[in-house]
Design a protein around this nucleic acid. Structure first.
Lengths: 240, 240
DNA sequence: TATACAAATATTGCAGACAATCTACATTTG
DNA sequence: CAAATGTAGATTGTCTGCAATATTTGTATA
C-alpha cells in the first residue's frame, strides 16, 4: 500500500489532469449532475477539481469531439441536447452494427463464445426474477459488448459504447420493467439460438429486431418533443 | 469585399484558434506532411501557425478523441499508426453500415434519390474513361456519402467519414487503376439496380460486397507488415 | 568499440494573468 | 411604458512563465 500523496503523484506520472478531468466531467454528465443543455462553467469546474482552467478546456475539446458537449464561441460549452430524430439515428447505427455482428457470429462463433453468451442470458434471467434492475442492466451491457467483441471488432465495440453514452444523454438511464426485462432477454435467447444454429440470416434478423424493439419501446415511452421551443437553449441539439 | 484585417477579426469572432488549429493539423496529417508515428511538436506547430501552445493543445485533444493522434504522458502526441488488423476492423464497420443503408434504401428510396445515384455513376464512368482519378475519387466519396445519407442518417455519414479518415492514415490515398475504377463502378451499378428493384437482401449483399472487395483489394496490395519491429515508434498503433 | 553515466537541452504539463466578449441590470429617451 | 443605451460583473479565449519530465549530447570507463 502506498501513501495517498505518493499515489496521487504516481497517477500524475501516468495520467494527465486533462484526461482525469475529462472522465470527471463525463461522469457529471452521465450521472445527470450536469443536465442536457446546461452550461459548463470552466472556472467552477476547475475549482471543483482543484486544478486550473487549462486541463479543463483540453478535456472539454475531447468531449466535444465525442459528441457529449457543444461549444459556442465566446459563450462556452453546453451539455449536448439530443433530439428524438438524432436518437433515432443513433439507434439505427446500433441496429446495423448489431445485425452485422450477429450474422458474423453465426458463421464464426466458437462453442466457448456461445457458452459465455448463454451464461450471460442465465445471469440476466436470474436478475429479472430477482427484480434486480441494476444487475440486469450491467448484464445487458456486457452481453451486447460481447456480441460486438466476438465479431472480433474492438472498434465496433467502442463505437457502440459511444453511441450508448450519447443515447443516455437523451433517455437518462431508461428503467426497464420486469416484463420488459423478460421480453428483452427472450430476444437475447433468440439471437444466441440463431447464432448457435449457424443461421446467418436469422441471426442478423434477430439482432436487428432486438435493438429495433428497444428503440420502439423507447420512442413509445418518450413524450412528443415538448413545444417550449422558446426555451433558452432550445437549439443546442447538434454540433457545428 | 471586406478588408483582410477586418475579415480576420470576423473569423476570430466566429471561430476559435483551437478549432482552426485542429483543421490545420488535420490537413497536415491527411496530406501526409505529418507521417504516421511522427511526433507532434507543440511549440513548432504553434510557431508555424503563429499562435501559442494553448489552442494547439486543445486541438490535439480533439484529434486524440477522433483517433488521428495518440498521446503518451510527458512524451506528447504522435500521428496514429494504424495496424493492418485495425484497418480491417474499420473496413468491417463500413461494410456493416453500407450494407444496412443499402437494405434500407431498397425499401424507402425515392425515384429522385435513385436518379441522383445513377447520375453519380455516370459521372464516375466518365471520369474512369478519361482516366481522371481525382474526379473519380470525389465522385466515389459523394456516392458513398449519398448512400448513407439517403438512409436519412447523418450520423452514419459522419461515422463513415471519420472511419475513412482513419483509414487514410494507413493507405495514404490509395490510387486506383482504371481497371479498378471500372470494376468498382460496376459494383456501384449493381447496388443501385438492387435498390431500384426493391430487393432488400440483394441490395444489402451488393453493398457489403462492394466494400468488402475494396478491403480485399486493399489488403492484397498491402505488403505484409514490415518486420522492422525495432523501429522507434513501432508501438504507436493504438490509443489508451 | 561499445556501454554506462552525467550534464545540457528540449519539450511537456500546468498555472496564472490579461484582454475581448458576453450577460444582466440600471438608466435614459422617445 | 417600451425600446435603446450604458455600465458593472462574469466568463471565455489566449498568452506567457515555470517546474517536471524526457531526450540528446558529451564524457569516461571497461
Amino acid at each position: 500500500m502506498i501513501a495517498p500523496a505518493l499515489e496521487a503523484l504516481d497517477i500524475l506520472r501516468t495520467r494527465t489532469l486533462a484526461s482525469l478531468a475529462g472522465e470527471a466531467i463525463e461522469r457529471l454528465i452521465v450521472d445527470g449532475e450536469l443536465k442536457a443543455g446546461e452550461h459548463l462553467n470552466e472556472l467552477a469546474l476547475a475549482a471543483r477539481l482543484g486544478i486550473s482552467r487549462g486541463p479543463i478546456r483540453e478535456a472539454i475539446r475531447g468531449l466535444e469531439r465525442g459528441g457529449l458537449v457543444v461549444t459556442v464561441v465566446n459563450q462556452g460549452s453546453f451539455v449536448r441536447k439530443i433530439s428524438a430524430g438524432e436518437a433515432h439515428e443513433l439507434y439505427e447505427v446500433r441496429i446495423a452494427l448489431t445485425g452485422y455482428a450477429c450474422a458474423h457470429l453465426a458463421q464464426h462463433a466458437t462453442t466457448d463464445q456461445i457458452k459465455i453468451l448463454r451464461d450471460l442470458i442465465k445471469r440476466m434471467s436470474a436478475a429479472q426474477a430477482a427484480r434486480d434492475a441494476a444487475d440486469y442492466y450491467t448484464g445487458n451491457l456486457e452481453f451486447h459488448a460481447r456480441l460486438m467483441d466476438f465479431g472480433g471488432n474492438r472498434r465496433a465495440v467502442r463505437i457502440c459504447d459511444e453511441l450508448g453514452q450519447e443515447l443516455n444523454l437523451f433517455r437518462r438511464r431508461s428503467l426497464v420493467s420486469p416484463e420488459g426485462m423478460k421480453a428483452s432477454n427472450a430476444e437475447h435467447a433468440d439471437i444466441v439460438r440463431a447464432i448457435a444454429a449457424g443461421d446467418v440470416a436469422r441471426a442478423r434478423e434477430a439482432g436487428e429486431a432486438h435493438i429495433r424493439r428497444g428503440m420502439d419501446r423507447f420512442e413509445a415511452s418518450t413524450p412528443r418533443p415538448e413545444t417550449d421551443a422558446a426555451h433558452k437553449n432550445g437549439d443546442r441539439t447538434a454540433k457545428g
